Simulated scan of single mutants.
Amino acid sequence: MICPNCRGKNIGIIGQKHYYCWNCAIELTVINNILHIHEIEHDGTLSSLDDLFSEEERRI
């Protein structure tokens, strides 16, 4: 898997269909072969970054 944000391959698995990019510190979730991208805020909440990427860029 390649991170759609930084194009890095340093991706770790944190749960079933949940991944974490160690390069740019974002969380990736796979639903129906589409990546859903979230930024982890300082308080631990997640903010969606899906609107920054086209569906084609997020397709795996």
Results as ranks from 00 to 15, higher is better:
residue 3 C to R: 08
residue 3 C to P: 07
residue 4 P to N: 11
residue 4 P to F: 06
residue 4 P to W: 05
residue 4 P to E: 07
residue 5 N to A: 14
residue 7 R to F: 11
residue 8 G to C: 15
residue 8 G to K: 13
residue 10 N to P: 08
residue 10 N to R: 15
residue 10 N to T: 14
residue 10 N to A: 15
residue 11 I to E: 12
residue 11 I to P: 10
residue 12 G to F: 06
residue 12 G to H: 09
residue 12 G to W: 02
residue 13 I to D: 12
residue 13 I to Y: 08
residue 13 I to N: 15
residue 13 I to S: 15
residue 14 I to Y: 01
residue 14 I to K: 09
residue 15 G to C: 07
residue 16 Q to N: 14
residue 16 Q to G: 12
residue 17 K to W: 02
residue 17 K to Q: 10
residue 17 K to C: 06
residue 17 K to S: 11
residue 18 H to Y: 05
residue 18 H to P: 00
residue 18 H to W: 02
residue 19 Y to F: 14
residue 19 Y to M: 09
residue 20 Y to Q: 10
residue 20 Y to K: 11
residue 20 Y to T: 09
residue 21 C to T: 09
residue 22 W to I: 11
residue 23 N to M: 10
residue 23 N to Y: 03
residue 25 A to Q: 10
residue 25 A to V: 03
residue 25 A to I: 02
residue 26 I to C: 12
residue 26 I to F: 06
residue 27 E to A: 15
residue 27 E to Q: 15
residue 27 E to R: 14
residue 28 L to N: 04
residue 28 L to Y: 02
residue 28 L to V: 11
residue 29 T to H: 02
residue 29 T to N: 03
residue 29 T to Q: 04
residue 29 T to S: 08
residue 30 V to G: 06
residue 30 V to A: 10
residue 31 I to Y: 04
residue 31 I to E: 09
residue 32 N to S: 15
residue 32 N to V: 09
residue 33 N to M: 05
residue 33 N to W: 00
residue 33 N to T: 07
residue 34 I to H: 02
residue 34 I to E: 04
residue 35 L to Y: 09
residue 36 H to K: 05
residue 36 H to E: 03
residue 36 H to G: 03
residue 37 I to R: 03
residue 37 I to G: 07
residue 38 H to T: 04
residue 38 H to F: 13
residue 39 E to W: 01
residue 39 E to S: 12
residue 40 I to G: 10
residue 40 I to K: 12
residue 41 E to G: 03
residue 41 E to R: 06
residue 41 E to W: 00
residue 41 E to C: 05
residue 41 E to H: 01
residue 42 H to T: 10
residue 42 H to N: 13
residue 42 H to I: 04
residue 43 D to Y: 06
residue 43 D to F: 07
residue 44 G to Y: 08
residue 45 T to C: 10
residue 46 L to N: 02
residue 47 S to Y: 02
residue 47 S to V: 09
residue 47 S to G: 06
residue 47 S to P: 01
residue 47 S to T: 12
residue 48 S to R: 01
residue 49 L to G: 05
residue 49 L to C: 07
residue 49 L to T: 01
residue 49 L to Q: 05
residue 50 D to I: 00
residue 50 D to M: 00
residue 51 D to S: 08
residue 51 D to H: 02
residue 51 D to I: 01
residue 52 L to T: 08
residue 53 F to P: 02
residue 53 F to S: 07
residue 54 S to W: 00
residue 54 S to C: 03
residue 54 S to P: 00
residue 55 E to H: 01
residue 55 E to C: 02
residue 55 E to T: 06
residue 55 E to S: 07
residue 56 E to C: 06
residue 56 E to K: 13
residue 56 E to Y: 03
residue 57 E to S: 11
residue 58 R to N: 04
residue 59 R to L: 07
residue 59 R to T: 08
